[in-house]
Design a binder for these strands. Structure first.
Lengths: 216, 216
DNA sequence: CATTGTGAACGGATTCACAGCC
DNA sequence: GGCTGTGAATCCGTTCACAATG
């Protein structure tokens, strides 16, 4: 409810968190904004402004206590409690996302993965069974899941999202290449990998010089 | 070389392209900025400014010719010729990315997928064989590939990137959860799915109201 | 007369410069 | 002395309002 930080800051929070996790695992206890700057690529001033936005976490003349800063960031992002999520769409991408989060993301807990194709249902990812779509509402409601990732074909994405929202999902990470319509208070992050790749291609250097030097 | 459009615009170009592809397949010949606004979620003024940045493509009083606009955008992004790319890392994510692009992305051509694990080498994605890392330099050089996607563990990502750059790659889509160091003229887009998910979680609505109304 | 193209106004985010503090 | 915290200045992207035009 009191959540209203600028998007630009929110985007950077998980990056700080990752760097801090690294520092802490190497038993670094204090870190300066300049070191964080080197690790993240953001400017030191920006980093200080970001932290200061949520209150002052550092000690002048010294820096930031890594453990303390981490605990603050976890609280701010909302990762201080395990977050449950469901995955809809058990194609290769859905499976990859599910397994990755089960193994590597300690902050989340995959409550279920669902697929419209009954042939997929029953096969397993780690210890998690892929379940038919009809089981989805019960899982979301019983476990009060708020977050969903969807990796279904573009054609079915809107219908899936409608169902998710009807059952109580409020935040969606969308891998389907389509614009979703949702009520105002529901958050959608688009992670369209084709768009990412295409906008990257804009920056490709064609480099005639190099071609010339090849044929030396 | 003359490529210097604002990042904010470049990010939107693939989205326009996708919408245009849809309109063209439904044989729509003319489109206004207002209709594009509905389809994309961007404002009509912004869309006009974006196109105008590259020159005037529309007709006042009428709108934009869909075919013409599409051809312009393809040229601008650099998708008017097939773009070759390599994928490094043939885990579930690498396989998913490879297969998706082979099947669904007509603008690119996967020249090869490579994995450090010899056990993976030889297995196939569609008609494409996963190859050992040592074959990577030859493929990049012979086919003059400039674009790479990497989906390897964070620990090996920097080494992989160094090799890619040494062999002529200039643009990298990075799925590994780590900050990569590259020379100034090399472009890296980070597509860290954990970051996306975590920043989404910031926006989750905890909704005490709803909990209360459940227990009616 | 509907719709594009664009200078001007606005707003948000970043950078600068330095005051405050350990 | 070194590093954080922050008001002021700047930069960049978006929105507004309207002139231009098929």
């Amino acid at each position: 409810m009191t959540k209203r930080a600028p998007k630009s800051i929110v985007k950077r929070l998980p990056i700080y968190l990752r760097v801090l996790d690294g520092l802490i695992s190497r038993e670094v206890e204090i870190v300066s904004s300049r070191v964080l700057s080197e690790e993240t690529g953001f400017t030191a001033e920006q980093i200080r402004k970001d932290f200061a936005y949520f209150g002052a976490f550092g000690t002048r003349g010294t820096g930031y206590n890594t453990e303390y800063l981490r605990s603050k960031l976890l609280r701010i992002i909302g990762l201080d409690r395990q977050t449950k999520l469901v995955v809809v769409g058990a194609g290769l991408l859905g499976k990859a996302l599910t397994r990755y989060n089960m193994l590597k993301n300690p902050y989340v807990d995959v409550a279920g993965i669902f697929d419209a194709n009954p042939a997929e249902a029953g096969s397993e990812i780690g210890s998690l069974k892929i379940r038919p779509m009809k089981d989805m509402p019960a899982v979301i409601k019983e476990q009060q899941v708020k977050v969903a990732m969807i990796s279904v074909p573009a054609e079915s994405a809107q219908q899936v999202v409608n169902d998710l929202v009807d059952n109580g999902i409020t935040a969606i990470l969308n891998f389907a290449p389509t614009k979703l319509k949702v009520p105002q208070n529901i958050h959608v992050h688009n992670a369209d990998l084709t768009n990412e790749l295409q906008s990257l291609i804009y920056y490709v250097i064609e480099d005639k010089e190099e071609l010339r030097s090849n044929s030396k």
